[in-house]
Simulated assay, not measured.
Amino acid sequence: MKKITVRAVSVIIALLLVITSVSAAAFEAPISTYRYSSVSSMSVFLSISSNGYATCTAEMSLYENISAEMTITLYKSKNKTSWTPVQTWDVDRSILPSFEGGCRVSSGYYYMAELSANTYNRYGSFVEDVSLTSAIRQY
């Protein structure tokens, strides 16, 4: 009886560890706010459907009197070392605080989305460039 109880507890603990690690891997946190002086938060996510449609979602919150020109780029790679652009979207952050775009992708590759932006103060002077990449997805 004691062996069965120990084995059952071990299986439950192992399952909890697997569930916790899968949940953590699926969660992509937005950027830490201390990295940049003009951006209060930003995030970029990539999802690929089972039929090969990649959706890139990006958001950026700016501090007061700051504007930004955002670029979202979808990259592909065979080896996760050398990345080739697949699609690029340019977004004026003063018009759209968030963006969602997509395109069809080919199987057999790794994919990653990057949000990059140049920020400007209220006088139109350049402040800084910011960037963030999504988690890598395989299709």
Rank of each mutant, 00 (worst) to 15 (best):
M1E: 04
I4W: 13
A8I: 10
V9I: 12
S10C: 07
V11K: 15
A14I: 00
V18F: 13
V18P: 02
S21G: 11
S23T: 01
F27I: 05
S32F: 14
Y36E: 05
S37W: 02
V39Y: 05
V39E: 04
S40C: 11
S41N: 13
M42Q: 07
M42Y: 02
V44P: 04
V44L: 06
L46K: 04
L46H: 01
S50C: 14
S50D: 14
N51D: 15
T55G: 10
T57P: 03
T57E: 12
A58C: 05
E59F: 05
M60V: 06
M60I: 09
S61M: 12
S61I: 03
Y63T: 01
E64K: 14
S67L: 06
T71Q: 06
I72F: 01
T73W: 02
L74V: 02
K76V: 00
K78D: 08
N79R: 11
K80H: 10
W83M: 12
T84F: 14
D90S: 14
V91Q: 03
D92N: 15
I95Q: 11
I95F: 05
S98G: 00
S98Q: 00
E100M: 08
G101H: 06
G102T: 12
C103W: 08
R104A: 06
R104N: 10
V105T: 01
V105A: 09
S106Y: 07
M112T: 03
M112D: 04
E114Q: 15
E114M: 13
L115G: 08
L115M: 09
L115K: 07
S116C: 14
S116Q: 11
A117C: 14
T119N: 09
Y120A: 03
Y120M: 08
R122Q: 06
F126Q: 12
V127Y: 05
E128W: 03
S131W: 05
L132Y: 01
T133N: 15
T133P: 11
I136M: 14
R137C: 07
Q138P: 03
Q138A: 09
Q138M: 08
Y139A: 11
Y139H: 11
